[in-house]
């Protein structure tokens, strides 16, 4: 029981990062049928912002908002320079474009900074723990979960109550019809990128304050997890992305504690096989956003 609850808290803590990223991935898929593998690069830019500012002893209170801002700015910039030009292209081209952007980002950091990791000191709070009854709980896990929940609630309110949210939902269902109602295509898409960037920036802050280093390729792995989470939940479904992210985070922790030592490294492989099986069983269910073509 002890480890069960402990694992659950750990898992939800990790999972909330995945879920925040996954919501962004899923939202972008909804509005433009793009699986954005460059989304993870937003974490990278946040990390370098943190490294840059902290090495000049800028306060965390300024550093964190700047890191989040960096992610938003990069997300919008990526849309403006690249995805806007291939908006109507095939899924094939969109996907490859996102991969090209990912490698481009890696190369830029390698050239601009270094291929070696840059370290920064993490704040004390990142690894503090407190005892709650029989459990030793990490403060940061609790903060992560609380912040993530606030973000999800905020996203839900945004989608229900604001015109921008309605535009995103409408555009995900029928983009042309939304344009006919006066929704500006450029605005809703770059808005979606900005919002996804904001969530990624927050996810980044939660993740990076504990990580303590920036390196060019660091965005790839968390993003892969986020994409898996979004796929589990059904691309385009934001609720699904949250559930998928949290489930993945928890599942990882449990896999680690159940699997014998030799198979530890195969955690991800198990997850992948599971996903592939899911695809085989109900491929259309996972991509239910794609509508049938009129013959």
């Amino acid at each position: 029981m002890n480890t069960f609850v402990q694992n659950l808290i750990d898992g939800l803590g990790n999972g909330s990062t995945y879920a925040l990223l996954a919501v962004g991935v899923s939202m972008l898929f909804g509005v433009m049928h793009l699986v954005n593998f460059a989304h993870g690069e937003l974490l990278t830019v946040s990390a370098y912002v943190i490294y840059g500012l902290r090495s000049k002893d800028v306060s965390w209170w300024i550093t964190v908002p700047m890191a989040i801002l960096g992610a938003v700015a990069l997300s919008v910039a990526i849309e403006f320079t690249a995805f806007r030009r291939v908006r109507t292209a095939s899924a094939f081209t969109l996907l490859l474009t996102s991969f090209a952007l990912e490698i481009l980002s890696h190369a830029v950091w390698r050239i601009g900074v270094s291929s070696k990791p840059r370290r920064y000191a993490t704040p004390e709070i990142a690894f503090k723990t407190f005892d709650l009854g029989p459990y030793r709980v990490e403060v940061w896990d609790v903060i992560s979960i609380v912040v993530a929940v606030l973000c999800f609630v905020g996203t839900a309110i945004m989608l229900r109550k604001t015109l921008f949210g309605l535009s995103i939902r409408a555009a995900s269902e029928d983009f042309d019809a939304a344009r006919l109602m006066g929704v500006k295509a450029n605005r809703v898409i770059s808005g979606a990128f900005a919002f996804a960037g904001l969530l990624a920036g927050i996810a980044g802050a939660l993740y990076l304050l504990r990580r303590g280093q920036a390196d060019p390729r660091m965005g790839a792995e968390p993003l892969l997890k986020a994409v898996i989470a979004a796929i589990i939940g059904g691309l385009g479904s934001l609720k699904g992305a949250v559930v998928g992210g949290l489930a993945l985070g928890v599942a990882e922790v449990y896999f680690r504690s159940f699997l014998p030592n030799d198979l530890q490294g195969l955690t991800d492989a198990f997850v992948f096989v599971l996903i592939a099986a899911l695809f085989v069983v109900r491929p259309q269910g996972l991509f239910n956003v794609q509508t049938a073509e009129r013959v």
């Binding site: 269902e173 042309d176 019809a177 939304a178």
Partner: peptide, 8 residues
């Protein structure tokens, strides 16, 4: 064919 937003 109307194209109302069915999810809204």
């Amino acid at each position: 064919r109307r194209r109302i937003f069915k999810d809204l």
